[in-house]
Nucleic acid binder design. Sequence first.
DNA 1: GCAAATTAATGATTTATTCAAG
DNA 2: CTTGAATAAATCATTAATTTGC
Lengths: 231, 231
Amino acid sequence: MPQTPSTRWCPTPEQLMILEEMYRSGVRTPNAAEIQQITAHLAYYGRIEGKNVFYWFQNHKARERQRLRRRLCARHHQQQPPPIPPPPAAGSSAAAATLHPAVMHPASYAATSFIHHPHLGGYLGTLPVVQHPAAAAAAGGGNKMATAPAGGAAFYSSGNNNSSSQEDWTTMSMEPNCSASPGSSDDGFPLPPCCRRPLKTLDLFPTKSSTGGLRDECSSSKSSSCSTSTN
Amino acid sequence: MPQTPSTRWCPTPEQLMILEEMYRSGVRTPNAAEIQQITAHLAYYGRIEGKNVFYWFQNHKARERQRLRRRLCARHHQQQPPPIPPPPAAGSSAAAATLHPAVMHPASYAATSFIHHPHLGGYLGTLPVVQHPAAAAAAGGGNKMATAPAGGAAFYSSGNNNSSSQEDWTTMSMEPNCSASPGSSDDGFPLPPCCRRPLKTLDLFPTKSSTGGLRDECSSSKSSSCSTSTN
DNA sequence: GCAAATTAATGATTTATTCAAG
DNA sequence: CTTGAATAAATCATTAATTTGC
């Protein structure tokens, strides 16, 4: 085995820099098409797959939030506010810009601001800052791709029986052969936009408790499941 | 628009029956290839996509567990065990079989029992009961498909800018053009099986608190969570 | 008997948690 | 310890049941 078939992706510094820049620019949950673009561009700097990009944003978002919570909680506990409350990544006071209020309507994403960053000249310029993946639903493709969007992550099953898993089931939308809701329209299912609202996507500090608030995090040992209060 | 372009999949009774039968047979997290098979077969009874199958198993598993937890908790609280603890769907006393201990090793799935059910003559017979998606990793494909498995769910971004999102990024694994770990092996990435163990997958009753124990569930409050409150 | 209003189920997404590689 | 990868839990949102008023 020549060059260590590492099991997991090791982002190169360039890749990382670009990703972080994008994150700071507001990209949080790129959809399939965007991930594809990003992957293609980052591939110039080293091996990378779409799922890596997806996971990176997923993890980065989650851990940023986690870090913030932990920090906040610590401050709240020991009354010792650290100098920089929420320093996102490498930015100035991008705290307000890092995460948009997320109250925009999905339909507006399609035409949302295009970012022009020095580091990412021309690249990010072609990538609309889409906060919510569901946004594109408003665009409504014409073919089945619209119905069966594009693919996803999670459940990266390493799917390979020796069977033929060439095509991707995520994009597979089949039509009935006999009866039961005769979806005859081949290009049918215009996918009624039904513009999903931003879903909430709790920005950083959900106001709605809903278990997703700020669980323990701060309680030194993870065992104490935030048992201090009501729970 | 002829026939109600419903935004979400409405399983036909036949589809539902088959799915439940499969679930009862032990199928919990089919991998991409299996989902593809299932989808293809179910498509005979009505429109269906791969993601629908994925989501169905995901939800069914989660809600079965939830139901059990809730029930157990209720029983523990009011000391009044209900007559039929977990009557899954159309099954007999499948309670014990509904949820396997999930301690089997992934590698063993590949050769696990093939099911022959009266209702599913010949169909389920061709589908190995794979519990954990990672199982197939042991089989090891040969090409890039092995590296970028097959696709997933979650983050079904309805991905369609007007851009070209034809191909799926989930299967997209790119090679560097210049340097940085020149993954030259075209069929490379033997994908070291590294058979993931079931992850713990807190079976039903996690012993490790970790917040994921059995939160409220049973606590009367949080009623309905539907329309009356929060929203 | 039907149709609007409510409630219960459940399909679809997002977030949190966990494991393990480096 | 950091972080990529993966799964489970929580949440949102829509559809089907069910109820209620006429």
